[in-house]
Write a protein that binds this DNA or RNA. Structure first.
Lengths: 252, 252
DNA sequence: GGCAGCGTGATTGTGCACAAAATGGGATCG
DNA sequence: CGATCCCATTTTGTGCACAATCACGCTGCC
């Protein structure tokens, strides 16, 4: 046998066939984020295969991927279910978000000013989209845009690794919100986002003169995350009785 | 509905089938962390299937899992390779570690003192293991123990989500170290870990009296991570290959 | 009427066989 | 002598069929 001599792995076009899988992952992920698939929903392989017109194996692969992201739970011989975070898990996810997003804001503040026009343009564009969704009362769009906003900031911060981690945490916090949000209507966070953009772009009023609203931006973000978490009811028992068999399926 | 807990203990064989995958994941993961599988090494499905005596589909699943952790890179129609971080990715991973581990240390400092005996015992036990490996000159064990130490601290901090994220980052930083470490001998971090344990346990000398060395611990950790990153040469790009069968000769 | 045991249908898990694609070697031509 | 093209072999990708397992409804019995 010959020793396999290995070169640096070349990059190949990611659009050939793997694009279909990514499409399904996005589709299901967005459906979960939009609450069209509430926590606990069973995701039958055959049904999904028919819906997306792909083979069952492909669906299986997608579910395995989503399970790694902890947005679905795989139970042996039972199938895949939309993940239903526990209260503790929800708290952990929000704490992790505070940790990472504080770092993101710190990095954004360390960026040279003024921000690049492209950055400002994307921020303003996003603000416009959120305001439009708010006016239209499109709650689903608002939720999706809210997640995208936080992810956008992470990308501007220039650390793709942190952004990837945050993306997963955003997905999971959406799940937590779906599982624990109070029945009472709650004010969505468009106003918080507006203030954040102002503080970051430096368009807000800063009586102290030269500085941008960086320090403000960090505290704004922390307050924002605290507010979102505070809108959850992390003490009440979950609305639907949890299937104990499912919970304990993995141990024995 | 009644739950059948009394009669049928659904003790699914932990090692029988589902455990096999976890075993392979651990095996490959440790081999990568131990540098037995350097970055860029090709991981052929058939070879791995023979080595672990499982079907190729199982290996495929494992590789997909490791790819999600970004420990291996999957290239369509080319196969799986041990991930080879770029210099920028390495910097990002270390920055992410600083972000998360600073939070971990903050949480550890916020813990009530004195620390639980079980915690102190595990810390001291770990210190002993690292010292033993250091005396024996067992570099592989030292690397593995070093990763376990950081993970241990994260677990003590009480946020499993952060710990999971950090675990992935530790794996990837091990990859980065393997890819970019300087050829010159470098002092391993056992001494840093000793000091960290002292600061956390409060056994170090603290002339200021009542407080433990918490603030010290945070800076110690940051310095420690900076030192590890500083030992890398983020300009060179080494490239090697290794024989799969010899690496896994002892298992099966 | 209620409960235990059992059979059936449906769903997931796994191996296998074939198809597609790339790698490597060799021959051919400039 | 070197580069290029082509073919054979190896490796990866995918669909299919069958096996295993679970949920549910049924029958019979107490």
């Amino acid at each position: 046998m010959k020793i396999a001599l290995t070169a640096s792995p070349p990059r190949r076009s990611p659009r050939g066939r793997g694009g279909a899988e990514a499409r399904i992952v996005r589709s299901i992920g967005e459906a979960i984020a939009d609450r069209r698939l509430p926590p606990g929903t069973k995701l039958a392989e055959e049904s999904l295969a028919q819906v997306f017109s792909v083979s069952r194996e492909r669906v299986r692969k997608v579910l395995l991927l989503l399970a790694q992201r902890q947005v679905v739970t795989l139970i042996p011989n039972r199938g895949a279910f939309v993940a239903k975070p526990t209260a503790q898990e929800a708290r952990e996810v929000f704490e992790a978000r505070r940790v990472i997003e504080r770092a993101v804001m710190d990095k954004l503040c360390a960026l040279p000013r003024p921000l690049p026009p492209a950055t400002l343009a994307r921020l303003n564009d996003h603000r416009a989209q959120e305001e439009a969704a708010e006016r239209a009362g499109d709650r689903k769009a608002l939720i999706r845009l809210s997640g995208q906003f936080h992810l956008l900031l992470a990308e501007f911060a220039g650390n793709g690794t942190l952004a990837t981690i945050l993306a997963s945490l955003i997905d999971r916090s959406g799940l937590a919100i779906a599982a624990f949000e109070r029945r009472t209507a709650h004010t969505c966070s468009a106003e918080d986002h507006r203030r954040l953009i102002d503080a970051l772009a430096g368009t807000g009023d800063h009586p102290h003169g030269a500085g941008c609203g960086c320090a403000d931006a960090v505290t704004l973000m922390m307050t924002h995350l605290d507010a979102v978490e505070a809108q959850l009811d992390l003490d009440a028992t979950p609305d639907t009785a949890i299937d104990l068999k499912s919970v304990f399926a993995e141990e024995g």
